[in-house]
Design a protein around this nucleic acid. Structure first.
Length: 392
DNA sequence: AAAGTGGGCAACCGCGGATGT
DNA sequence: GACATCCGCGGTTGCCCACTT
């Protein structure tokens, strides 16, 4: 495992950058691009190592950086993403245009962690502190789902290849048993193209993919249909014309993979009454990603006007923005759900509602241990949505 | 006014993955 | 396959500054 040879060299400046150094680096990269970072300091006339130059560029000099304090939406977004991704700062930063991983990491460590604790939420697990304390009291053997929680992450296990026919009533969080976390599951299944056919997304989505609503300040109705291996986005039925609106992520057997390694997922049958069969190209790339184009969950998320999501009518845009700022809900009865953020007020989460078409695993709020289920499923969904976008 | 303290931030360090030879 | 190099990431450190005593 090699290290930067420049790291061993002496006479290299360390510490804060001077304005002159900034100017040199900025001028050089503006004119020539960074190319090989190890050669940048020499060519730019800097007494720095390449790593230092790269860091300075990424965290400070890059022209697309957004300056200033984080907005509330951005903070919410970070919290939500952290709940999904854990300390994967670079992936979180990828969802926040103009923000760097370092910036987000600092914000988290200095500010957001504190805020969450003040609100009674454990920043590592994103669960209420009381619940976390209870978990600690429990013997390890009684809660396998928590054993996999990694340091600094809230990773929660997911059903691993549950049979399609498994009755939903039997599904209980404590029975969730996996050899890997949800995130790992998706990373494992989606993150590489080298897997054999048993590791396609359809296995996950189609076999037994469960979602529910997560009150992180977003309201994202989705459903999974285990019968046709599809993940559906069901806009909140705030108006009659949207009642039938769905975006179905067709889990094709073989998602197309472009030459740059980006897997392309076609969303079939996006319709809102007036517009049918609109295809949504779901790509995981820095420019167009799952969250950006499909269910960006915060107002601050840019709406890529070039995206292939065909938002034609202004009214439609408005409704989309509503969806993007409301919690994950399964089904189209989301208007009954309170959309208060868990981070605004700690309260037991309500159950989740599935799309009516998904009768195989329909859960009603009355008949399930909704809080536990929702706690797990919602995070699974968010992990899926983000991981889907980030790691394909 | 000086010293102490804590928070925020920029930068460094060390590691692992990817790639080239 | 072994090794070297580069890149990127996450954890940590240390400086700066505002605030308090």
């Amino acid at each position: 495992m090699g290290r930067h040879s420049c790291c061993y060299k002496q006479k290299l400046r360390k510490g804060l950058w001077s304005p002159e150094e900034d100017e040199k680096l900025l001028n050089y990269i503006t004119k020539h691009g960074h190319g090989c970072w190890s050669s940048v300091p020499k060519l730019a006339g800097l007494q720095r190592c390449g790593k230092s130059c790269r860091l300075r560029w990424i965290n400070y000099l890059r022209p697309d950086l957004k300056r200033g304090a984080f907005s509330q939406q951005e903070e919410n977004m970070i919290i939500e993403l952290h709940a999904v991704l854990g300390n994967r700062w670079s992936q979180i930063a990828a969802q926040l245009p103009g923000r760097t991983d370092n910036e987000i990491k600092n914000l988290w460590n200095s500010c957001l962690k504190k805020k969450l604790r003040q609100r009674g939420i454990d920043p590592n697990t994103h669960k209420p502190l009381s619940e976390v304390e209870n978990d600690k009291d429990m013997p390890p053997s009684t809660d396998k789902s928590n054993q996999k929680a990694s340091v600094g992450s809230n990773e929660v296990s997911l059903v691993d290849q549950l049979p399609k026919s498994m009755p939903s009533e039997r599904y209980h969080p404590l029975e969730v048993s996996t050899s890997c976390s949800t995130q790992e599951l998706f990373l494992d299944r989606f993150g590489t193209t080298s897997h054999d056919n048993t590791c396609r997304p359809s296995d996950v989505v189609g076999s037994y993919f469960s979602f529910q609503h997560l009150n992180y300040g977003t309201n994202m109705p989705l459903s999974a249909n285990p019968n046709n291996a599809s993940l559906s986005f069901i806009p909140q039925s705030t108006s009659s014309e949207l009642n039938n609106s769905t975006i179905t992520l067709q889990s094709n057997t073989n998602p197309s993979i472009s030459s740059d390694g980006v897997q392309n997922w076609e969303a079939g049958s996006f319709s809102n009454g007036n517009n049918t069969n609109k295809n949504i190209q779901l790509q995981s790339s820095t420019n167009t990603n799952f969250l950006d184009n499909t269910w960006g969950v915060a107002e601050s998320m840019k709406v890529n006007k070039d995206s292939q999501v065909p938002l034609q009518a202004e009214q439609e845009d408005l409704k989309w923005s509503e969806y993007l700022n409301t919690p994950f809900i399964l089904g189209n009865t989301a208007q009954n759900q309170t959309s208060q953020s868990i981070y605004s007020e700690v309260k037991p989460e309500t159950g989740f509602i599935t799309d009516e078409s998904c009768t195989n695993w329909h859960h009603s709020q009355q008949q399930t241990p909704a809080f536990q289920l929702s706690d797990i499923y919602s995070k699974d969904l968010q992990r899926f949505s983000v991981t889907f976008g980030q790691t394909l």
